[in-house]
């Protein structure tokens, strides 16, 4: 498969860029429309696949990047030994989940959902740059509000917040009284 000029331009741009390039930037630098860029990206990825490259182009945190294949995780990880942070604990992941879906939210809100103290989980997430303090709630005590960061999207390979797994009902659920909730099983899961 011979790649066209546009696809190769896109490849060159993504490779050379210091930062992930957004679709708008790719359009601007190549002088093409969004659809053409998307198609060019598809052709590139097909070419990578056909030629059994260890790379693909992915969209993470609103930008396109060249990514290595999962298969080579072990080999590549040697480059970053000792520097790469460990995986998040369950407490941190649960806290992360609550913040991701109900941001901006207070510590109290997180704790009322998880039913346990979340101080250390929040601290870990702040240190790892997964969340940030995005303001204060204008209620007595003016508690801090937490929101997710771009590092969060990058870490979990999300292109943007809309790409979080869909749980449309969460917002509804959070604001719903217990009696309202009785009436329906929101997730169709019923039992564990």
């Amino acid at each position: 498969m011979i790649l066209d000029r546009l696809a190769r331009e896109v490849e060159a741009l993504i490779f050379a860029s210091e930062k992930p390039l957004s679709i708008e930037q790719l359009c601007e630098y190549t002088g093409s429309g969004e659809d053409s860029i998307h198609q060019a990206l598809d052709r590139l990825n097909r070419a990578f696949l056909d030629n059994q490259h260890a790379l693909t182009i992915v969209e993470v945190a609103g930008g396109f990047r060249i990514a290595t294949d999962r298969e080579f995780g072990d080999v590549v990880s040697q480059l970053f030994e000792g520097r790469k942070p460990g995986k998040l604990s369950r407490a941190a992941l649960e806290t992360m989940a609550v913040i991701a879906y109900s941001q901006p939210c207070t510590r109290i809100a997180i704790e009322s959902i998880r039913g346990v103290n979340c101080d250390s989980a929040i601290r870990t997430l702040l240190e790892r740059d997964m969340i940030r303090i995005s303001g204060r709630m204008e209620t007595p005590g003016r508690p801090l509000l937490y929101s997710t960061t771009r590092a969060f999207l990058e870490y979990f390979g999300l292109s943007n917040l809309d790409h979080l797994p869909r749980f449309d009902e969460i917002e509804e659920l959070l604001g719903m009284s217990s009696s309202e909730m009785e009436e329906r099983d929101l997730f169709g899961t019923g039992e564990e």
Binding site: F15, R65, K87, M96, F156
Partner: peptide, 19 residues
């Protein structure tokens, strides 16, 4: 959701991107 995130984490810690 946390379990879902954990699966993503599992995948994405094995993927290296540039930049």
């Amino acid at each position: 959701i946390a379990e879902e995130l954990q699966r993503s984490e599992e995948t994405w810690t094995e993927i290296y991107t540039s930049p």
